[in-house]
Design a protein around this nucleic acid. Structure first.
Lengths: 221, 221
DNA sequence: AGCCTTTCGCTACGCGTCGTAGCGTAACTG
DNA sequence: CAGTTACGCTACGACGCGTAGCGAAAGGCT
């Protein structure tokens, strides 16, 4: 009897740790082709009408190859769109307000891409009933973007626009960073996908003013 | 030849306008049973594993009856969860900060209900590729809750906590209301469903302070 | 009453997707 | 070379979808 290896659904990111093993190596070209085909299918069909068989056909790959690497549609799509969010960056525009406006515009532009918005909302919906999937989303997409908040705060502190927290307040600063991240990301997503209204220049200015100055300061322009 | 009526997928809310028509009337009991069964199925199975046949069986109704009233899963679920969001209210707690904290807590409690979170995210995801569905969501769920923002602002103005906008600034005030709505709803959703962290008392206080005073005022507690 | 209209429950159907099993072949290691 | 792993391909049972067709039930209209 052969020992059951049970290595199914092994995620491809461990390709480096997979080196030096006996047997035929996994095709890296197939990985990129599959993820690219997934994004293309998301653009054309959207989340609900995307099927594993269709992705396999687009990628020129057997359907079984898909299931050898991803447990299902959820995990595949998370990996396919995760790379899109890593393109976000925070160029120094000279002031905290300008930096915030810049990142808000970038995020809004990303959410205009059909593959990004249909996939992001769908996998978050699925993650409400799938704890491992939620963790995968956080590790692959969400937490990686908190770097933008950290960098923005560091710059603002260097400019003197924000006070430097005392060392014994590091936990409070961390909580504030998480809060700011939820406010910015959540508000832009809600504006673009739920309210369905444009993230134009005027709205971005209003939002930034509210974020920096609060309701009293930015009440009515 | 009989004239083709083509009245399929007629939404049930028009029950009042349906009175006085010839033929057997639609069962109002079936409507409530179906919507209740849908919510129960959402709790047990979640969005993705919810099937029309299962809902019909739970409601004690033929599957064809479902399709006579709703075009599909999307529309059915929107109607099923819309009533949950109408339970939100804004009791007067004496100050703008307290009012904001109260509504944030209520919304967070609603998002802890499994049928609410799985359904809301899923239908929003679907609506990114279905314009009529997006309009249905806005009319049935989103826009109805803007009343909370309007009421909160009116109270704050009456208390003198916010300035009363000039008459020629009515459009700016409306834009500000929309912005505040997106900020509150989006931030709470992102915190609860994307970041997956608890909306507890401390976080609510931090968020309220940030919303009212801005980054400079509420920087680190 | 009788007729018309609409809804209801039920059955059955074709269609597409899912996820897996089985096989022979290809690729890489020792 | 043998051993091990990945690949392409085919086929399969299971399930949900959305519809058609039927007879029966429940109302309005004359």
């Amino acid at each position: 009897m052969v020992a059951v290896m049970c290595r199914r659904h092994t995620p491809p990111p461990s390709a480096a740790a997979r080196a030096g093993r006996p047997g035929r190596p996994r095709s890296a070209a197939a990985d990129t082709a599959i993820l690219e085909a997934t994004r293309a299918a998301l653009v054309e069909l959207g989340w609900s009408k995307l099927s594993m068989g269709d992705v396999a056909a687009r990628a020129g790959v057997a359907k079984t190859t898909l299931y050898r690497r991803w447990a299902g549609k959820n995990e595949l799509v998370v990996d396919a769109v995760a790379v899109l969010f890593d393109e976000l960056e925070l160029p120094d525009r000279g002031s905290l307000a300008a930096d915030v406006e810049g990142v808000v515009r970038q995020f809004a532009a990303l959410l205009e891409r059909p593959e990004a918005k249909t996939a992001l909302m769908a996998v978050v919906a699925e993650s409400t009933r799938d704890e491992p999937l939620r963790e995968r989303i956080r590790a692959s997409i969400v937490d990686r973007q908190k770097r933008l908040v950290l960098e923005g705060r560091a710059r603002a502190q260097a400019r003197g626009e924000l006070p430097v927290p005392a060392d014994d307040r590091a936990d409070a600063a961390g909580a504030a960073d998480d809060l700011v991240f939820d406010v910015i990301a959540g508000t832009v997503v809600h504006r673009a996908l739920v309210s369905g209204q444009p993230v134009d220049g005027e709205w971005v200015r209003r939002f930034t003013a509210l974020l920096l100055g609060g309701l009293g300061a930015a009440a009515y322009d």
